[in-house]
């Protein structure tokens, strides 16, 4: 799975992650304070300049932004028809601006730096005893690690269906896929505990491992 991070050396790339995330948060609030087409238009222009400065290129940008741009267009058009031209334009400008700023942040912050930021942000929660901040990075790694495995299990199940002349149906695919995947949880959890990765922990009896 490739991240949407793009290597580069633009000004926005060199900016540390936290000010960028603060900028995004402020933008998401400020855009809803005004309905002036002029101000929103200026904001959209600024966001487009920002996104353009990253050096991603037209083709790649189109591929990245197309799905979200499309939903924004549809909704803006619907608003225009259902309500008024002004409302439609407001929706279009607000959301495309926000989309471009968000996409610019995503394209310039590598996964590792993002996880550090999230872990940092989770510290207050850890103090409240709600989460263990270090678990966040571990869980993210685990998901990325196991997606390809789930996909290859899916393909094997497909082939198994074909080999036995069975029709590929949602339930006969999903059920074994889930059971096979979740069954490896015991061993993965045991490996995490065996390697002492979560620090101080008391291992428990693994009843269904054998």
């Amino acid at each position: 799975m490739n991240s949407l991070y793009v290597e580069g050396d633009s000004f926005f790339h060199r900016l540390p992650p936290r000010p960028k995330l603060v900028l995004l948060l402020l933008a998401s609030l400020a855009l809803f304070l005004t309905r002036s087409p002029l101000l929103l238009g200026l904001a959209a222009g600024a966001a487009a300049l920002l996104y353009g400065s990253l050096g991603i290129g037209w083709r790649q940008s189109w591929i990245r932004l197309r799905p979200i741009l499309l939903t924004i267009m549809i909704v803006a058009l619907a608003t225009l028809i259902l309500n008024s031209v002004e409302d439609g334009v407001t929706v279009l400008l607000r959301l495309t601006t926000l989309m471009m700023v968000a996409a610019a942040v995503t394209a310039t912050v590598p996964i590792g730096a993002f996880i550090d930021e999230v872990t940092h942000a989770a510290w207050p929660l850890e103090r409240l005893g709600l989460v263990r901040a270090a678990d966040i990075g571990l869980s993210v790694g685990l998901v990325i690690r196991f997606v390809p495995e789930v996909v290859s299990r899916y393909q094997q199940l497909r082939q198994a269906h074909q080999a036995r002349g069975l029709k590929v149906r949602a339930t006969t695919m999903i059920v074994p896929l889930i059971i096979q995947t979740l069954k490896s949880a015991d061993e993965v959890a045991a490996a995490i505990d065996a390697r002492g990765i979560r620090g101080q922990r008391q291992a428990r009896n693994l009843e269904d491992s054998r």
Partner: peptide, 29 residues
């Protein structure tokens, strides 16, 4: 567990992070 390492029957389930280098570093965390 600091003195006894364990290699599981299915090493597939033992590698916890996506990239080998990150995974090896994880044990030292």
């Amino acid at each position: 567990r600091r003195q006894v390492g364990f290699i599981f029957q299915n090493p597939q389930n033992q590698i916890i992070l996506p990239i080998l280098r990150e995974d090896i570093a994880l044990g030292l965390k």
